[in-house]
Amino acid sequence: MTSMLIVGVGGQGAILFSKILTEALVEKGYDVKMSEVHGMAQRGGSVSTQVRFGKKVLSPIIGLGEADILVSLEEMESARYCSYLKPGAIAIINRYRLLPGSLADGKESYPEGIVDFMSAHFETHLVEAAAAAQALGNSRCMNLVLLGAMSNLEAFKDLDWETVIRRSVPQRLLDLNLKAFEAGRALPW
């Protein structure tokens, strides 16, 4: 069984990411469970969804030291959830910084050394999703860029991504999201 954590900041699209991922895993015949948090957590706070898949999944959620793969839509959030990872697990990190409200006054700066710390302890893959998304003219599709990058992992090699994206995204945003996915898939891994 594989346990995953998809983390980011409210509004970055962690839930759509997880929805597409889980639907693709179901198509492939896996037992899948996914857990998300609603309500207060949406308003610009730190968010996480958990996805578990395999032959048979029991609990929908995990605890410390149990995740195999972390996908972080924001740089610092990867470190916030790193204790949920098995040592040496895979971490896919968007090199994108969103300043938390607590730092808006400029008195303290965004913490440095996150990527070095993550790279030292985990099999870390850095993704420049912001640049890829901006090249497509919409920074809000970073989540699909990350999904495309993640699809290069062995565990997801032959999932039917396109079919699932087609039915998960509104028609007017479909072309953008498909391009974002492909852009992510083509990024150096």
Partner: peptide, 26 residues
């Protein structure tokens, strides 16, 4: 597992102090 069986899986905690990211009015 930890509280009843006394098993603690290994994990790595981040030594870097992370600022809070609390929800706020949009």
């Amino acid at each position: 597992e930890q509280r009843v069986l006394g098993i603690q899986k290994p994990y790595v905690a981040c030594p870097i102090k992370l600022p809070a990211r609390a929800p706020s009015l949009c």
